[in-house]
Design a protein around this nucleic acid. Structure first.
Lengths: 240, 240, 240, 240
DNA sequence: TATGAATGAGGTTTCATTCAT
DNA sequence: TATGAATGAAACCTCATTCAT
C-alpha cells in the first residue's frame, strides 16, 4: 500500500526509525489537539501516522508518554527558536517584542493542542514536579534572562518581581492568542501583538517613567526632547 | 404548589431538593476539578454528594449538563459579585483593582475546576457558540463597562482596543492566579495582586503620564515636536 | 390538577379503584404494544394512566403481573365474545366464518400489543405451564368445540387432527391479520377474511364444500364421476 | 492478499476470522432465542462463542447489527435451500409439500430464535422498510413463484389472491411448527406436515389434486364413490 | 391510598494495551 | 520490527422497584 517513495527514501535504518517516530508524534499532535487528550484515540493516531496500533507502543511506552513526547518536541522547538531569536537583538524592548510575537504566533497556531491535550501536565497540584512543568520552565527561562538582563541595564523596573511580570506577559499573550484564533482573519496578528506590547512594555520598562512609574515610552520622549532642547540651545547660542 | 415556606429542619420539599442539587453541583465541581471532565466519574460525584448514582441523573440530563450547571453557577456568582463590587467604587483605578483582586481570588480558589473541567467549553473552534462562551461573555462585560466608563472619563487610553486590554488583564491575572496556587503560602495574595496591578494600570491608565505615556500617541507628539524643533532649527539658521 | 369529573364521578370506593385499575391496564396495553414488553417503561404507563409510578405497584405486583393482567383482560374479552358470537349460529361453516372474522378483527386491532408484549408468554419451552398458555387454551376451546360439534354433525373431516386444524386456522388468520395491518386501507377486511375462509373451509369441511365451495377440487372430481356414472347407467341400460 | 489457501489446522487467518464470526453468530442465535433480544446479554453471547466481550464488537457494530446478522444468515440459508429443493420437483403439489416440510423443519428448529429475537424486525408499523422485512420478502418469493407457476399450469385456483394463500400457508405452518416444538416427541413431524398439507392443498389446488392427493376429502370421495359403485351394481343387477 | 424522589444493580459499549504471528 | 486481532476493565446511563411522606 505504501510504495517506496523514491526521492526521499531514508537511507539508514536509524533514519527510518526516526522518521516513523516523527510521523507518530505529528499524528498525535494533530489528534490530541482536536478534542483533547482523553478523547484522542490511539487508533486514530496510528492511522494518521500510517502505522499499526501496536507500533505506537513500540515507540512510546503508553499514551501519556506519547503526549509527553509531543509536548517535549513542541517546547524544545519553541525554546530553541526563542533563544535564537533574541540573540541578535540589542535592546530589551525589541527582545520582548520578539518574544511576544514569537509566542503568540506559535501559541495561536497550536492552541487546540495546547489548551486541551496538555492539560494533564498543568492541572494537578503537583504540577511543579511534572515533566510538563520543567519544559515550560526551560522555555520561560529565555524570558527570565531577558528581564534579568534588562534589569542589569536599568531598562526594567525592579519593584515588581520577575514572576509577576512573567505571568502577565505570557498570560496576557495567551489570552490574546486565543482571541486571535477565534477570529476569521489572522491578518491583524502583527497589529494585535503591537498593541499588547504597548501595554506590557509600558508596564515593565523603566526609563522615563522612572519617576512616576508611568508609561515607559515617556522616557524616550524625554530623551528626544532633551536632545532637541540641547539643539535648540545650541542653535540659540549660535544665533546669538 | 407554593406553600408558605416555613423554616423547619430539612425544611420544605422544595428546599430539600434544591439542597441536593447544590450538593451535587458542589461535588461535581470538586471532582471535575481534580482531573478534568473526562477523568471525572459520576460514581465519585455521587458518593461525594451523598446520593446514589442514579440520583445524579434525576437532577441532570447527563454528564455534560452537569458540567454546564457547574460552570453556570460559578460564572453567575462571579459575575454578580463583580458587578456588585464595583458599584460603590468611584474611580476607574480602584474599580480595576477590585476586579483584579476579585478575579484572582476566585480563580485561584477554583483553578483546578476551571483549568480542566471547563476546557470542553473553550477548546473547540465553535467556542463562541457554546454556552460556556456566553457565560464568560457576560462576566467580562463587567470589565468592559468599567473600561468604557474610564474612557469617557478620560482615564483610559484609547489607542489600544478594549479587547486587547481585556485579554491582557484577564490572561495575566489568570496566570498569576495559577502561580499563586502552586505556592504553599497564599498570604501574599494581596501583594501579588498589587504588583500585577502596578503593571496593568500603568499600561492601561492615562493619568500619571496623560501627556507622556507614549501610548501610540507619543509618537505623534514626538513627530510634532520634532517638526517644531526642525522648524526652530531652520528658523534659527535662517535668522542667522 | 384533576378536577373532579362531575357526570361520571364514580360512586363507590370500589368503583373508583376499579376505574383506576382499568386505566392502568389500558395504558399498559398501549405502551406494551408500542415497542414490546422490555422497552415499555413503567413511568410511561403511569403517566398515561394519570397516576404516579408508585401507584402502579399498588395495583400490580410488578411489571410481569401487569402484563399478565393486560393479557388476561384481552383474552377474557376475546373468549367471551367468541363464545357469545357463535351461540346463535346454526351451522358449522357460519360459525367458523364468525370465529375467523372475529379473530382477525381483534388481532388486527391489537397486533402490536400481541406480537411484542406477549412474547414472554409464548417464547419459552415451558409455555404450556404459563398463564399465557392457559388463557390461549381457554380461547381456542371455543374453536375446538365448534369443530367437535362439526364432526358429530358430519360437517368436518375426521382424518386430520383437531390440533392441526386449529393451528392452520389461527396461524393463517394471524398472518392474514398482520398483512392487513400493514396496508393503509382496512376496508378490505371482510373480503380478505372471506378469501381466507374459502381456503380454510374447503380444507376442513366435508361434503357441503364439494357442492358450492368449488375450492375443493374433489367436488369437480365427484361431479365428473357422477356424470360418468350416469353415463354408465345410461349406457348400461341402453346396452342391455 | 489471497494466498493459496492450504488446509492447515486453524488454517489461514481469514478462515479463522470467519470461523470466529460464525461462532459469534451461532452463540447469538442461541442466546437471542432463549429470552428474546432485549433480555439477551452480550456477555453471555461472548462467553458462548468463546471470545471476550469486546471481540463481539470487533465483528459487529452493535447488538442490533448482530441480530441482523443472525437473521440474515438464517434467511439466506432458508431461502437458498427452499429454492434448491423445488428445482427437481416437477409438479406444484410436491413443490408445496416440500416447501411446507422444509419450512416447518427449520422453523421448528429455530422457533425460539425466531419468535422472540426477531420481533424487533416485525413489530413496528414500518416493518416493510426494515431489513428484516426484505429478508422475509426474498424468502417467500420462492413460494410465490411456485404458486404463479401453478396458476399457469392450471394447478392453482385463481379466485383467491396469492397474498392470502401465502399468509395461510406460512401462518398455518408456523403455528404448526410451534405446536410441534412443544411436544416432547418430534417423530411425528412428517405426519403432521402431511396433515397440514392435506388441508392446505385441498384449499389451494384446483381439481385434479382431488384424485391422487387423497387430500382430506378422499374419505368423502371414497364414500360417495362407494355409493356410486353400489348404484352401478344395482343398475347392473337390474339390467341383468 | 397515593405520591414521586431515590435507589443501585446491571447492560452496552469503548479503548488502551497486549501478544501471537 | 511490525501487525492488528483480541482482551477486559470500566464508565455512563437506564429503569424496575422501594419507601418516606
Amino acid at each position: 500500500m505504501n510504495k517506496a517513495v523514491r526521492p526521499s527514501r531514508p537511507q539508514t535504518r536509524r533514519q527510518r526509525v526516526e522518521e516513523k517516530e516523527q510521523a507518530i508524534i505529528a499524528a498525535a499532535r494533530a489528534v490530541f489537539g482536536k478534542n483533547g487528550f482523553d478523547k484522542a484515540k490511539i487508533a486514530e493516531i496510528a492511522k494518521r501516522a500510517g502505522v499499526a496500533e501496536g507500533t505506537v507502543y513500540l515507540y512510546f511506552e503508553n499514551k501519556n508518554a506519547l503526549l509527553l513526547a509531543v509536548a517535549t518536541e513542541f517546547y524544545d522547538r519553541l525554546t530553541h527558536d526563542a533563544a535564537e531569536g533574541i540573540k541578535s537583538l540589542p535592546d530589551t524592548k525589541s527582545r520582548l517584542a520578539f518574544l511576544a510575537r514569537h509566542h503568540v504566533e506559535r501559541v495561536a497556531a497550536e492552541w487546540p493542542m495546547l489548551s486541551t491535550a496538555m492539560m494533564p501536565f498543568k492541572a494537578s497540584d503537583e504540577y511543579r514536579q511534572t515533566e510538563g512543568y520543567q519544559l515550560n520552565r526551560t522555555y520561560v527561562e529565555v524570558f527570565d534572562q531577558v528581564i534579568r538582563d534588562g534589569i542589569n541595564r536599568g531598562d526594567i523596573r525592579t519593584d515588581v518581581p520577575l514572576s509577576v511580570m512573567r505571568d502577565i506577559f505570557y498570560g496576557g499573550l495567551e489570552y490574546g492568542a486565543r482571541t486571535l484564533r477565534m477570529r476569521p482573519d489572522r491578518a491583524d496578528l502583527d497589529e494585535t501583538v503591537d498593541q499588547m506590547m504597548q501595554i506590557l512594555s509600558v508596564g515593565m520598562l523603566v526609563k522615563p517613567a522612572a519617576v512616576d512609574t508611568d508609561g515607559g515610552a515617556a522616557d524616550a520622549v524625554l530623551d528626544r526632547l532633551e536632545k532637541i532642547a540641547t539643539r535648540l540651545e545650541t542653535t540659540a547660542a549660535t544665533t546669538d
